[in-house]
């Protein structure tokens, strides 16, 4: 049984049928990526899984437990954490306060302190700036912060929405290295990306979305070689 099973979900924005029957699976220990063009439904899929949107039809299960009925804030307790699109740091809070918000649902102070050190180990830059107001961080630092904040909830499944958005290529590489490192330590990752090449180079498997439907799924290295994917998303003729 897969860790996360999404079965035939349909999500609407008002009358707009955004997801038209998405089904996907994420197995324990994998990095799975959703790629696709603008408006394909990548973010909508992620927001539906994280409970911020509700599917009108279809089910989502996590380790066999139905989670598509649960409100977003309870999913954190089930081990799902999200790094939202555009990073969404709490701009007026300091770096450390942001990270503490990530551990909001936990009460084990000692472990939180050690987790904080772990995140600072991953992102030494954040440690330097722990007292700084996060709104004044650079884009790359904010992405680190958003990722670190999600990790503070000790997730078993990490949902990441466009971590490369608006970042310099060198920073993107750093972020993707970190994703791989996090994954190696046992966190399963579902990654939504427009930067298909980068995403496929670290992912185990991938799904290609087009106008609310999955049109292709395969191992990541095979997708990379697939002619349609190459043409549409990798810019190879």
């Amino acid at each position: 049984m897969a860790m996360l099973e999404v079965h035939d979900i349909h999500t609407y924005y008002g009358n707009i049928h955004a997801l038209k029957g998405i089904s996907l699976e994420v197995n324990q220990g994998e990095i799975v990526t959703l790629i696709g063009a603008n408006g394909a439904g990548k973010t909508t899929t992620l927001r539906t899984i994280s409970g911020l949107l509700r599917p009108r039809q279809g089910t989502i299960t996590l380790n066999g437990e139905l989670i598509s009925e649960l409100p977003a804030h309870e999913l954190v307790y089930k081990g799902i954490a999200m790094v939202p699109e555009g990073r969404g740091v709490f701009a007026k809070m300091s770096v450390q306060e942001n990270l503490e918000m990530g551990a909001y649902h936990r009460n084990d102070k000692a472990v939180i302190t050690s987790d904080l050190e772990y995140v600072f180990g991953l992102f030494p830059r954040l440690k330097e700036r722990r007292r700084q107001v996060s709104g004044t961080l650079s884009g790359g630092e904010q992405q680190m912060l958003a990722t670190g904040r999600a990790l503070m909830s000790k997730p078993t499944l990490l949902l990441m929405d466009e971590p490369s958005m608006g970042l310099a290529p060198i920073l993107v590489e750093g972020i993707f290295d970190t994703i791989q490192a996090i994954n190696k330590e046992g966190t399963t990752v579902l990654l939504v990306e427009q930067n298909a090449l980068m995403a496929l180079s670290i992912a185990h498997r991938g799904y290609v979305l087009q106008t609310g439907q999955i049109v292709l799924t395969d191992k990541a290295d095979k997708l990379k070689k697939d002619p349609t994917v190459q043409k549409a998303y990798l810019g190879v003729d």
Binding site: A72, H73, E74, P84, G88, K92
Partner: peptide, 20 residues
């Protein structure tokens, strides 16, 4: 802190486990 997080970004606050 809950209030503050909600004031900043309701969606993210919810994703952090806050019952908004």
């Amino acid at each position: 802190r809950q209030w503050m997080a909600m004031r900043e970004d309701e969606d993210v606050a919810e994703a952090m486990g806050i019952n908004t």
